[in-house]
Design a protein around this nucleic acid. Structure first.
Lengths: 154, 154
DNA sequence: AGGAAAAAGGACTTGCAGGTCCGATTTACG
DNA sequence: CGTAAATCGGACCTGCAAGTCCTTTTTCCT
């Protein structure tokens, strides 16, 4: 139902949010989130284009979350890599109804709307703050922090 | 978000429900629902395996809905061709948490649950009965009925 | 029996998501 | 300036969903 790319992007961003405002290399992200390293690099590029993360080349560089975790919703992340496409017109291509959807596609679009709403309702901060013994990403120990340089988040 | 196959299957089944208890050939279904004929044939096979439709070879044969439209939900159709796979275990493969999902995947699964619920809540009959000028499948006129033979639905 | 109409099913093609590899480019630091 | 560390970006590979085509099988009708 959700693509691998979406799954990977969410893991990556949640991880960055957990480490924020520290920067992490794609290699570090890949290892912790169990995402193929080179593929993650492409996904990160997309996240950067969408303004969700900032990247920094060269020695000491890496990837850092561009905003406050409380200001980023799951929907933001999903839409950055693979926008949820609501059904706005009859897929059969008949223009007989103009804007109105037929009952079937109305229901399908309602389902999409429900997903959108569920994702819009949760921020990264909320994911991290979950009052449970279960830590985000199903992972326990975190690697030691790297210092973040002035030119990133801070 | 939803695959083409799911979209096609829903169109096909809604069409059959509208024509029920008459039988239709895959060629007729394909034309009305604007689904590639040969591909629809494969999808129908899947629906038949799931018991949603009955097929009849030979002259005068075709496809007929196997149940009452009020007894078939959208979820039934979706699950017949491409089951919604809920997230029941941590996709990272860490067994540290056993059954409990991390906050992220909990949210994702919640979204899936919402879709499931939305689809479970609507039957084909309800789709057809929508009190609107907008007929199902965004289509207006229907082809003339074929008689259905005793050995199918009746 | 024979022909026509229908689904069944196998082989094949195509486009794209997911994934890999590697060189080019940018940057920090001694 | 040189080197190492990091992203960038292009080329490529692979498996699967989507779609096409054709033959076989079943069935009805005359």
């Amino acid at each position: 139902m959700f693509s691998q790319t979406v799954e990977y992007a969410l893991r990556a961003v949640v991880y960055l949010a957990a480490e924020a405002p520290a920067a992490r290399t794609t290699a570090q992200m890949a290892e912790t989130t169990k995402v193929p390293k080179d593929y993650l690099a492409k996904i990160v590029q997309g996240l950067a284009r969408a303004g969700l993360v900032r990247t920094q080349r060269g020695v000491g560089g890496g990837v850092v979350l561009a905003k406050d975790p409380a200001a980023v919703t799951i929907l933001d992340v999903v839409n950055a890599v693979e926008p949820i496409r609501r059904i706005t017109a009859c897929p059969l291509g008949l223009k007989a109804h103009g804007v109105r959807l037929c009952p079937l596609h109305k229901r399908m679009d309602n389902a999409l709307a429900a997903v959108e709403e569920a994702f819009r309702a949760t921020t990264l901060a909320e994911v991290l703050a979950e009052p449970t013994d279960s830590v985000p990403l199903c992972d326990g120990p975190r690697p030691e922090r790297l210092t973040v340089r002035g030119k990133g988040a801070g």
